[in-house]
Amino acid sequence: MPAARIIPCLDVADGKVVKGVQFRDHRVIGDIVEHAARYRDEGADELVFYDITASADGRSLDTDWIHRVAEVIDIPFSVAGGIDSVARAEACLAAGADKVSVNSPALADPDLIGHLADAFGRQCVVLGIDSFEDEDGTWRVKQFTGRPEATRDSGRAMLDWAKEGSARGAGEIVLNCMNRDGVRRGYDLAQLGALTACVEVPVIASGGAGTPDHFREAFEAGCSGALAASVFHDRRIAIGDLKAHLAASGLEVRT
């Protein structure tokens, strides 16, 4: 079995690591290479960089910081935010990224997923899904979640979109459960379990991590990786301690 992957996610604006997902309110918290190196040294298995400016402004992704990260770290990393074409994805990969993650642009143009898989191989293509549980309990896919005032329902059901996305060539799915985002009460195991049962590709849990047990639960629900931001940034959970906890629970981790 591959090791259960622990994946810190960093928000990036103008080449700096920022905090606060509201793109107007973000605060610079540091240099991107220093943060990447810190997480690598702490034992992160993979990193995700989400360029919040690119997706919010419709600007092209600045690839200079991608290259600076690629120079320094020796673990895989993916880039998300604002990737809406094969050309932009190619720019990210040419700068040294290992994977690109697409979300709203794939909802707008589902063919994009297949174009990316054809060009780079499906192992380079991650589909990010922002799912919101409605009052009636259905899991709806939301679009343009980077800006609260722009967020809208995509008209798609989460499981249907995940199945379509993987059939179109996504090699991995990051499921971000919006109801859990930022509340640190645990990942949405019902959604994650339902998703891992119906797609063949690896699933990465996102949204809700607050304790080491939350990570264990996500892996036991069938997830291949678990993504988190605030618990790592705020140093509430040290990656080394987390891996020791998972190993003690019988999970394979990278040491």
Partner: peptide, 10 residues
């Protein structure tokens, strides 16, 4: 169920 494809990871 225990070996999703692509094989991604360590």
């Amino acid at each position: 169920p225990t070996t999703p494809v692509p094989h991604m990871g360590w």
